[in-house]
Design a protein around this nucleic acid. Sequence first.
DNA 1: ATTTGCACTTGCAATTTGCAAGCAAATTTA
DNA 2: TAAATTTGCTTGCAAATTGCAAGTGCAAAT
Lengths: 142, 142
Amino acid sequence: MKTEKKRSDCPLSCSLDVFGDKWSLLIIRDLMFGNKCTYNDFLKSEEGIATNILASRLKGLEENGVIEKSAHPDSKAKNLYKLTPKGIDLLPIIMEIYIWSDKYYEMPAELKATIKEAKKDKDKFVKQVTKELKTKMTEKKT
Amino acid sequence: MKTEKKRSDCPLSCSLDVFGDKWSLLIIRDLMFGNKCTYNDFLKSEEGIATNILASRLKGLEENGVIEKSAHPDSKAKNLYKLTPKGIDLLPIIMEIYIWSDKYYEMPAELKATIKEAKKDKDKFVKQVTKELKTKMTEKKT
DNA sequence: ATTTGCACTTGCAATTTGCAAGCAAATTTA
DNA sequence: TAAATTTGCTTGCAAATTGCAAGTGCAAAT
């Protein structure tokens, strides 16, 4: 994989160099809310990421310190992908995307309550979910 | 341009179908904070977008109701691109990206004060800037 | 012992990107 | 008023990226 030379010093541009594509944030989503943590978990997501693209994105996210790969406690055949603190800190961004989407598109019923809760008190939501994620990402088991 | 078939019903995935690439949010940034509003303005941004990519992104953003093209009041040779309310509502997302970036990367000095202000009271910042943008986008002149 | 699962890699065709050039209409300059 | 420049694109083409299918090597289950 090529060294990602940054296009400018703009923080937005630098951030997009890290996760500005159609797939990266979906992987983060799966790690945050989907209870997914292995290569095959991500492959099975409904958007249907291609296996080589998944490999490339996982590598990029790991190189950028957003996720980390570790041994799976249950099996040597599996790897466990986890969000780093830097990855967990993407939560406010993802939350705001959901909120934007909720305003302009259809929201699946299962998500409505969560988004409503998030909108009611964003800070509270972020703090609470962040705490849960920190805990989850340091657990030995999934 | 192809009809963007959506990959899933996930709001995050749908949102990424709209602005999930390396360039779209930079155009939005230029419209929000860069005082840019014409094709050539966007071309001149330091990231150096290719002219055909710019044309394609502008078309996509317009098709998705995020921006709109109108006649430039000063010249028939120019077009004026503006954020729609839907586009202005991307502000919280962009703000959170800046805040994330501020935590993990270098922040240009000129932006530090603004980010600090935004972090101090996000809601207030969003409301204030939104108001300014609504005003700016309905003005006759730039 | 064989099959299945997991995490990839590889090959290749199709799509997208990026660069350079071109172009028509509007505007500015000489 | 004629020529040069600006503006907002389009086009051609090479290079890079994507997506699909198949393959690989190791681990684990049957």
